[in-house]
Every structure is written in C-alpha cells, then in structure tokens.
Write a protein that binds this DNA or RNA. Structure first.
Length: 670
DNA sequence: AGCACGCCGACT
DNA sequence: GTCGGCGTGCTC
C-alpha cells in the first residue's frame, strides 16, 4: 500500500494543489498518469503522480483510492521536477506545467502509427569538410558532449557562416555518445531546408519533427515514438523543448534572439530557461546560435555564463551588401512627401532594369502612435524610462507606458522649434498602393499576417517569388527569417522609425536585428546586394551600427543604456495584467495588488514597482485590462516570485471577478 | 470548474 | 408544511 500526491487535471485555480490518495498498486511511480475519483460526486479525473509515499503526511477523514493507471503516458522524474520548477518560476498551475510535457490528443483511431516525414528523402549528403573556424568552434562543444558535462555555448556567427553545419556535426557527436538531441527553430514552416538536411544526414527513422500542422492523433503518436526511445533527434518550434526524451545530450536553439522562443500563452515560459533547467539534470550541452544575439544573451557570454564562440567569415566569401541610410528629413525639405524616398525609387528602378528582385520591409504597424518632428527627427521620450511616449487622443496627452508619466504634447518641436510635429504609427500600409502607382508593369505581392492566415499561402507566395514570378515582395519581418533567395538585388526598409519607437526598451535591439536580418536577404547569389534604410533619425546608433554591420559596437552602446536605466540584463521586468468585464473591478484589483506588493518591500525597494495603469489596448474582447510593471533587480527574482505567489494565495480566498497573468520579461508590453 | 449543502419565498 | 431559488464553500 502506497500513498500518492497527485496534481488533478482541473481547470480551476482552486484545485491547484497536490491531493493525497491511497494506491493499492505498488508499481506506482512518480510521473505516471492515473485516474482518481474527485469531489463530492467522485467524478473520475486524470491526475499525475508527483510524489509516492509509504505513509500519508497527515490524517485524512475521507481518504480516497486511486484508480487505474494510463500505461501509455508516463513522465520521468526529471520532467516532474521541471514542472515544479515551472510552477514557481512562471506562477502557473501544476497541471499547466504537466500539459507542456504530455500530448494533448489521444491515441489515433486508425490504430497504426504514422510518421509524416517517413517519405521525405531529404538531401542525401556528403558530409562537407569544415573551415578552420568551424573546426575551432566545434571543438569545445564536442569536448562537452564527450565528457558528458553541462556546458552552455553562444555561437555568434554572421549570416552564411555555416552555423547549421556546426549544429549537425555537434548532433553527430551527441548521437555517438548514445544521447539525444533537441533542435529548436523559431518557426517550423520557414525551416524546411534545415529539416531536409537533418533527415538527409541522420535518416528519417531517428528524427521526429513537431510542427503545428500535426493533428492531435499524429501528435500523440509522435510523442509515443519519442518516449519509446526510437527517436534520437527532435526538431521543432519552442514547445519541442518539452520532448519526452530520457537522455538529452544537446539542445540547440537556432536564431536564439527570436521572439517566438518566449511563449505567449500560459505558462509564459522562456525556452532557454526551460532548456537550461532540463540540461542541468541531464548533464547536457546548450548551444545558442545567432547572427545578432540578444543583448542579454551576449551579456551572459561576456560574464562567462555562456562560452562564446565566433564565426566571422561567410562560407562562400560573398561580400556583405552595400547598406545606405536615407535621411527622410532631407526628402521632406526637398519637397518629397511620399513614403518612398528618391534614392529608394532610383534603386528600385535600377534593380528592375537589371531583372533583379526587390524586397520591401514594412515593419509591423505600430499599435501606438509616437510623436516626432519631421524636420529634426526628435521623438518625444519618457525622461525616466527612456522609451517613446504614446499619444492618447482622448485626453490629448503623451503617456509613458512603463511608469505613467504624461505631458501635453508641445505644438512646436522643443529642440528645433519646427511646426512639423507629426503623430506616427499608422499609414505605412499605404506602401503597397504607392509602389503600385510608381511601378505599373511589375508584379507586386504582399506577405503579412493577413495574407498568410490562409494555409499554404506563405509557401505559395514564397515559391512564386523564388521562381521569379513576383518582382517586388512587400512584407513584414516574416520575410526576413532565414530565406535564401538568389536573385534579390535590393532590400528596402521603408521606415526604421516604426520599430525604433515602439514603446519598449528593446526597440533599438529589435531594430538592429531587423536591419541586419533584412540585409542578409540581399545579395545571396554571386553579386553584392544593396540595402536602403529610410529613417527620420538616420543618426540613431541602432540604425547606424546596423548599417555598418558592427554588432560589437552596438552591444557596447546598448548595454550602457540598459545599465543606466536598470533594464535587463540588469533586472527582470515583471508584467502583471489584470482583466475583467467590470472596469471598476480591475482597477480596484490592480490597486490592491500594488499596495500589497509595496507592503512586502523595504522603503528603498518601492521605486521598483510602478503604479498600475490601463493597458495600452485597454479593452480587448469585452475585457478591461490594467497593467502593473515591476523592475525586479538582479538576484531578487525568487523573492518577488514568492511575494506574488503569497498574494495570489490570499487573493483567491475571496472569490474575485478578475484574472491575473504574470509575464516575466515579456516580448511585448501590450 | 462542478457539486452539494443551506436558508428564504410561492406552491400542492 | 415542502419544492426549489442559486449564494457559499469544499474538493485528498
């Protein structure tokens, strides 16, 4: 007779605790899935075993007994341990964490297992010989793998420097140690080449590819295939970090800086953190790769938390593209009010004459309006937070979304006295229209979230572009992600300012990454490509250093700003969002939390918590939302988690009609 | 989230 | 007197 502590598969916050059951089955183990009677009606619920005990921890007046076990779903102790860690770190429920590791579907009814990539031949390959640089980079990774030690690497390599080959050879070494590999990519639909190369090299039978098109049944089958030990390499987007492998030797994150590695659903986990947690138990190696590492990542490589490896030369020795910045203030002065500058227009004409293709980048439309002078380029910013102020029409104020600072927008530019104050943020969607007017006999296609909603449409557009059927492709960041088009002669960035002035402390970082990535699309064939960046603040360091392709200098500049402002990596930003149908109730709830948090802090720590304010998009889906931001100093994260946890505990005693979500270092502050 | 217990108003 | 309203509180 055993006693088990289980997490119940229930939606409610109120039942998010471990319940003790008696268990007749002596074979019961931590991680198993088991049926239990629950509640007054003894409804049968799924539950997961977190602890197995010989004696119950206390007397229960109505102890119940667990039912049958699910023989197909069982997790390892390492996974249960990681669930406990996730609950703390992301303030999610036990079951939310467990569900990351278990397949959502049930056994597929067809009865036979299916592997959608079984028929993919992949490119049969000769293993290419490595350049000197690649060999050098690979050496310490191999060493870590062979010794079976936990090590962490940042592979900083320019576009086209052959990172994928390093990944594959590291994977090879890992397999030779009888250990398994998780290969994570930002977006599976744009990663066909990598998948084909892996399948070609290692064979489809040892690889599981997890992607969003899998049906629930297929997902279940893949999960079982992985769990059974048949699979030694799992390729997938961020959720593949939860793959139920039992001997993980290596986790690779390609394009480490990408926003998709941060989950936007509960639990709001950070893929790198989960990978690290798992690798510590498995004594495995973490390999982060990027051409433009995130500032916090690079900082950690400076601190020695990650070992940094550099690939500086391009594989095929193609010269980096010619990058120039167009000053849109001059365009205005000279009477060109159009969205396309004269240099960009000229370059487009030339490219079309040479039968070269063009990509125009339209940055994601800002959800907020920033205020800027079209003559000198000045942008209104918060004096305390250093981020752009957002214009609120209803009250005619420029507001800081971090701390709530506000001011009446000046009628003339405070720097140069110009009357050309403009409210930016919308209007860029007119690009397509303008381009069509300027270039009548060309094929123009737009690629963004709206056009890609329909299945297969990304592939269709990209294929047509590849075949040369489309002359000008207008798109958002989507187009920038790792695509290799040989005939692109020109890349134009319509407005660097939109990205630069998103009210987020990372907007310079994002701008730098966006420009670098876009530039990487130009001149991938044998000719040097051209990149043109349009901006009203052409002297901005992010724009300038991206144009100069100087990552190191950008890092040095940016890290100073982060240090001065106390932003990550010098702190963690904790964002809490309160939501309710009742506007007054959310406001009150946010205030209560604010007061309670302050109550737990010492006098000199109170400045880290900002007064709650209505969210920038304050009403979404009939719900009113309030935000509360905490700048959590380095090393204090656990303390804050505990404070929030205890408030959550107290708050749920009184049933309140609102929801709270906590997001640590969110990718956007909405 | 369910589901039962419980303490007040209109029915056979 | 009792059938049922859904407010309140618990679930090993």
């Amino acid at each position: 007779m055993k006693y088990i502590n289980v997490a119940i598969d229930n939606k409610s916050e109120h039942t998010d605790t471990l319940y003790t059951y008696g268990c007749e089955d002596d074979q019961v183990r931590v991680g198993q899935k088991i049926r239990v009677p629950f509640g007054l009606g003894d409804r049968v619920k799924d539950a997961y075993v977190f602890q197995v005990l010989d004696e119950p921890e206390q007397e229960y007046k109505r102890l119940k007994f667990a039912g049958e076990r699910d023989p197909e779903i069982f997790l390892t102790e390492e996974i249960i341990d990681t669930c406990l860690w996730m609950k703390r770190r992301y303030l999610c429920k036990y079951i939310d964490a467990v569900k990351c590791f278990t397949p959502a579907g049930s056994r597929s009814k067809r009865g036979k297992e299916r592997n959608p990539y079984k028929d993919t031949q992949g490119e049969p390959q000769n293993i290419p010989s490595l350049t000197g640089e690649q060999k050098q980079v690979l050496e310490p990774i191999r060493q870590g793998l062979v010794q079976g030690r936990h090590r962490r690497f940042l592979l900083h390599g320019v576009t086209g420097s052959g990172k994928t080959e390093v990944y594959m050879q590291a994977a090879q070494t890992c397999l030779e140690q009888q250990r398994q590999v998780i290969m994570l990519v930002p977006e599976i639909s744009l990663t066909k080449q990598i998948i084909e190369r892996f399948i070609g090299r290692f064979g489809a039978e040892h690889i599981a590819v997890l992607h969003s098109r899998l049906s629930l049944g297929e997902r279940y089958d893949e999960w079982r295939r992985i769990r059974s030990g048949q699979v030694s390499i799992v390729i997938g987007a961020r959720s593949a970090v939860f793959a139920p492998l039992s001997r993980i030797g290596l986790i690779i994150l390609d394009e480490e800086h990408e926003a998709t590695y941060k989950s936007d659903m509960t639990p709001k986990y950070d893929t790198v953190e989960v990978a690290l947690k798992r690798l510590q138990s498995h004594e495995g190696v973490l390999l982060l790769g990027s051409a433009t590492p995130g500032i916090s990542t690079y900082f950690r490589s400076e601190e020695g938390i990650y070992e940094r490896l550099e690939l500086t030369s391009r594989y095929n020795q193609v010269a980096l593209p010619q990058v120039s910045v167009v000053d849109m203030r001059t365009e205005l002065k000279d009477g060109n009010r159009s969205i396309i500058s004269r240099p960009l227009y000229q370059a487009m004409k030339t490219a079309l004459e040479k039968k070269k293709q063009i990509i125009l980048f339209l940055n994601r439309r800002g959800y907020s309006t920033f205020i800027s002078c079209r003559e000198c380029g000045k942008v209104l910013k918060c004096p305390d937070c250093g981020i752009s102020l957002t214009y609120h029409k209803e009250k005619n104020r420029a507001v800081c979304h971090y701390c709530g600072y506000e001011e009446v927008p000046p009628p003339i530019c405070p720097d140069c006295g110009s009357h050309y104050i403009r409210y930016f943020g919308t209007g860029t969607e007119k690009v397509e229209e303008t381009v069509r007017e300027f270039f009548e006999n060309t094929t123009i296609e737009r690629l963004d979230l709206d056009t890609t909603k329909r299945k297969g449409s990304i592939e269709r557009i990209l294929n047509n572009f590849k075949k040369g059927k489309i002359h000008i492709l207008i798109g958002t960041q989507l187009v920038a992600k790792g695509l290799d088009f040989k005939n692109v002669g020109l890349v134009g960035i319509i407005s660097a300012d939109v990205t630069l002035n998103i009210p987020d402390f990372r907007s310079p970082e994002r701008t730098f990454q966006m420009i670098t990535q876009a530039a990487g699309r130009a001149g991938r064939g044998d000719e040097t490509g051209t990149v043109i960046i349009q901006s009203y603040t052409p002297d901005n360091y992010a724009v300038q250093l991206a144009a100069a392709q100087d990552y190191r200098e950008f890092y040095e500049t940016e890290i100073q700003f982060r240090k001065y402002m106390g932003y990550p990596p010098y702190s963690d930003l904790i964002q809490m969002v309160f939501a309710s149908k009742d506007e007054e109730k959310v406001r009150a709830a946010a205030e209560v939390w604010y007061e309670r948090i302050l109550h737990h802090l010492k006098e000199d720590e109170k400045q880290h918590v900002f007064r709650p304010q209505p969210a920038p998009m304050s009403k979404v889906k009939e719900q009113y939302r309030y935000c509360l931001l905490i700048k959590c100093p380095q090393g204090k994260r656990r303390a804050y988690s505990e404070i929030l946890d205890s408030i959550k505990e107290k708050e749920k005693i009184k049933k309140k009609e609102y929801t709270v979500t906590v997001d640590i270092n969110p990718y956007s502050f909405v």
